[in-house]
Design a protein around this nucleic acid. Structure first.
Length: 275
DNA sequence: AGCTCAACCTGCTGGC
DNA sequence: TGCCAGCAGGTTGAGC
């Protein structure tokens, strides 16, 4: 489900309900996520006050006294703020119950998600935690530009689509937005990343930012099951130019769009507009 | 060091 | 209608 825009949408949705609130308890109905939820996490959180919420790549970071929660939604995870007494449905694995009677509820059918504790505050965790320290720059912040893509790509041979989906290169570009960004930049997704000019990488960096920002404005992309914290879908799906549109006419030139498997992921492109 | 592939899960869809 | 293969928004780690 979530790429960067969906995680950012979730963050903005849950933040006003959580920041500064007191935790009543943590209810874990299913601890088997990508890594098991630590057995001592409930007692660690009970009675604590929630500090600032932030995002690094597709990870949500929630500061609590003595450390932070690290939360990842995997492929199928979503978070909603509900009344604490709302009966859980299938795959509602965790409730972070607040003293005000509401709860942050984690729903994740495939259980590729993650809920971890780290003794570091978020600012330290992003530089030290094994899952965070290796991550490349945020695409929507200063420090990400085409020259970085150009420089790093010189020593690499992979397809450009795989290259921009590498979190060490730039974070947050998942399978949907990789196809969309490459389409807007006019670059064929299977092109070897070292055979692309600095000028084209400059353009690509811009289209990545444009696509991600546009999706955030629309509340993310709902394909199947993504919902915002209030249960509403995201509305970017109808803006997608190529993703999932095999055989349909290219919005620019009318040529039927094609699909190709690159790095084990389905990729969508226009054979006429992208080279 | 870089690349490819398998693995972690459940649910849905399309073909027979 | 039913069954089954294949695929789905992510990420890590093993092995070459």
């Amino acid at each position: 489900m979530p790429e960067l825009p969906e995680v950012e949408t979730t963050l903005r949705g849950i933040r006003p309900h959580l920041a500064g609130r007191q935790i009543e308890r943590l209810v874990v109905r299913e601890h088997r996520l990508r890594q098991p939820i630590a057995p001592d996490l409930p007692e660690r959180l009970t009675g604590q006050r929630i500090g600032p919420l932030s995002r690094r790549a597709k990870y949500l970071l929630i500061e609590v006294a003595g450390g932070s929660l690290i939360l990842h939604l995997g492929m199928s995870g979503s978070l909603r703020v509900v009344a604490a007494q709302t009966p859980p449905i299938k795959h509602d694995h965790v409730d972070l119950v607040l003293a005000d009677g509401r709860a942050l509820r984690l729903h994740d059918p495939r259980r590729f998600g993650l809920l971890l504790w780290t003794p570091d505050p978020p600012a330290l965790a992003v530089t030290r935690h094994p899952l965070l320290r290796h991550l490349g720059p945020e695409p929507l912040e200063d420090g990400f530009a085409g020259d970085r893509l150009y420089r790093l790509s010189r020593a690499r041979r992979v397809a450009v689509k795989s290259f921009i989906m590498d979190a060490a290169v730039v974070v947050g570009v998942g399978n949907i937005y990789a196809s969309e960004s490459l389409y807007l930049a006019g670059i064929h997704p299977a092109r070897a990343c070292h055979r692309i000019s600095a000028a084209r990488y400059q353009r690509l960096a811009e289209t990545i930012r444009t696509v991600l920002n546009a999706s955030i404005v629309q509340g993310g992309t709902t394909l199947r099951d993504f919902v915002q914290e209030n249960g509403n879908p995201g509305y970017f799906a109808r803006w997608l130019r190529v993703y999932g549109r095999t055989g349909q006419p290219c919005p620019g030139c009318g040529t039927p769009l094609r699909e190709q498997r690159i790095g084990q992921r389905s990729s969508f492109y226009c054979p006429s507009c992208q080279h």
